[in-house]
Nucleic acid binder design. Structure first.
Lengths: 197, 197
DNA sequence: AAGAAATTGGTAGTAACTACCATATGGCTG
DNA sequence: CAGCCATATGGTAGTTACTACCAATTTCTT
């Protein structure tokens, strides 16, 4: 890796870290982009080149965690057993998020307090689910492939969201992996009240 | 209803309609709030009192449709059969949306083209699912109530989103109610590849 | 009819974001 | 090593969404 890319990574991380510091200390709305740029010792112009909106500053880590797992899934061979693959996707996402619990909690905190951040977070998971649907559609065969893929992708997303939500709400609660297994068990067990067909 | 409320409804609708006209003609990003206000013959200041953000102008109808159904559900007696109730919620939302198909299609068009609109739309459905989860939690008893409620609410939301998505993508396709039944049938039939527990 | 309450429109200001340009820095070739 | 090219940076000027506030008007109440 050349010096150029190295520097890019460095400043990117620097900006992101300083932004989080300011956001958690003074709140998202009370922190201006200029303040972040000043704290990171770059011009506002440079900051905007790395992060096109203020919200992306908050969501980068979560987005990377989710789409990293999705990209792994995309690279799997076509013969991959889908139930196994989907389970792996869930575990991969959760593993990635668990690498930085404080950051995840801060993200959800900010998303709860600031509507624009909440909206962007919702949009990220929505887009993630859509792209998983596309990938699943290509791996499925038979009738109603579109619907089947979309329902499967939606279910996977539900599990992840529920587990993460529960996890960030109770610090030091059950392990995330156990939570995920509980959710999957409930779904398979059929104890969920579904609308009558 | 007094004259005051009547006028309020009128201007609200007028603003919303003019906004949609401009959005569909020239695009969301190329329409300014001032232009909308001028078209509706109100001051920008007044417009902001009705619609706090430009995006709410787009999403009002969808939001009302979804939360109308949710409020109906909240008013049902505690003994309500949940599967039946959830099916009714789905049908109610779809009924409401079907009252203005052009508007729904325009909303999804704008949401696809404009990130901030897409984000707000995702946030609306996300919040809707959360509130349905709360309501379901109160109506459930037993172990893992939180998880059960969240999974049920998530599934209901998935069905609605999939049906609406399919509906807006193919004009003059299958009836929405048939699409909903197809989705529910698939779910009950167990043909969906779920992650291994 | 008169006062209270709510609606309106206007003004001034903040801050996110865009387009553009000059400068500086890292990477490669003779 | 010198010079050239591509890229990264920082600054300037401008647009626009949105907020806070105030004066004037309209509707409701008694």
């Amino acid at each position: 890796m050349g010096l150029r890319e190295l520097k890019r990574e460095r400043t990117r991380r620097l900006i992101s870290d300083k932004a989080f510091e300011l956001f958690t200390d003074h709140g998202f709305g009370r922190t201006t982009v200029e303040q972040i740029a000043a704290a990171a010792e770059v011009g506002p112009s440079t900051l905007y080149r790395y992060y096109p909106t203020k919200e992306t500053l908050v969501l980068e880590f979560v987005e990377d965690s989710m789409f990293g797992a999705l990209n792994w899934f995309r690279e799997q061979p076509a013969e991959l057993d889908l139930p196994d693959g989907l389970q792996s996707v869930i575990e991969l996402v959760l593993d990635q998020l668990e690498r930085n619990p404080d950051r995840v909690r801060a993200v959800y905190e900010l998303a709860g307090q600031t509507p624009s951040v909440g909206a962007r977070l919702a949009e990220v998971t929505w887009r993630w689910r859509n792209e998983l649907t596309v990938e699943l559609t290509q791996r499925l065969a038979g009738d109603s492939v579109e619907f089947t893929a979309a329902l499967a992708a939606g279910t996977v997303m539900n599990i992840i969201e529920i587990v993460v939500q529960t996890w960030v709400d109770n610090p030091d609660g059950t392990q995330v992996k156990d939570l995920a297994h509980e959710a999957m068990g409930l779904l398979r067990g059929g104890g969920i009240p579904l609308p009558t067909a």
